[in-house]
């Protein structure tokens, strides 16, 4: 069970997390891909580079995290790298979820789509594209989903005023 493997105190850094949870399938799967790791508040967060997101998702799916929950972004404007993409994956068997994080620079906010692995990412990636302006390469239908087609700007960016531009 989850309690047996995970403790309570926060741990930062790949070395410390990998040492603490050597048997965790997500850690094993991303042993070579993870650039950073965090274990905080009973949640495992693994960071990978932008180029390896598809490989990382594939590896996690093979490790048992077969259910894609969602992907969303956080805009850390004005600091760089500006965008943080958080993928949430769930394992039915382990009854545990893992968060996969990718950081993107503000002037080159694009990443490969994971729709070939999980078609469920379709709407979520469209939502992130619509509200944050992050481009997903290889997405079959990357159009605005919430806002009208002719909308200008990406509302969930931090430099977009809460009241809008009008």
């Amino acid at each position: 069970m989850a309690e047996a493997i995970f403790g309570a105190e926060a741990i930062f850094g790949t070395a410390a997390v990998f040492e603490k949870f050597p048997d965790e399938p997500a850690v094993k799967a991303l042993a070579s891909l993870a650039t950073d790791a965090k274990y905080d508040r009973d949640e495992l967060t693994l960071t990978v580079a932008r180029e390896s997101v598809v490989a990382a998702c594939q590896a996690l799916r093979e490790a048992g995290y077969i259910f894609f929950e969602d992907v969303t972004a956080v805009d850390w404007y004005p600091s760089e790298p500006r965008f943080q993409l958080s993928y949430s994956l769930l394992s039915f068997k382990l009854k545990r979820r893992v968060r996969l994080v990718v950081r993107l620079a503000g002037d080159d906010a694009s990443i490969d789509s994971i729709t070939p692995i999980w078609p469920a990412a379709n709407f979520y990636e469209r939502e992130v594209f619509d509200l944050f302006g992050i481009h997903f390469g290889g997405h079959p239908n990357l159009r605005r989903i919430m806002m009208p087609e002719d909308w200008e700007g990406h509302p969930l960016r931090k430099d977009y005023p809460v009241e809008g531009y009008r």
Binding site: R61, I66, P116, I117, P119, P140, N141
Partner: peptide, 17 residues
């Protein structure tokens, strides 16, 4: 659990329809 076979085609958009 059986491995996931991705559906043949991802949901089309309105323009595709």
């Amino acid at each position: 659990m059986a491995p996931i076979a991705a559906p043949d085609q991802i949901n089309p958009g309105i323009e595709d329809v």
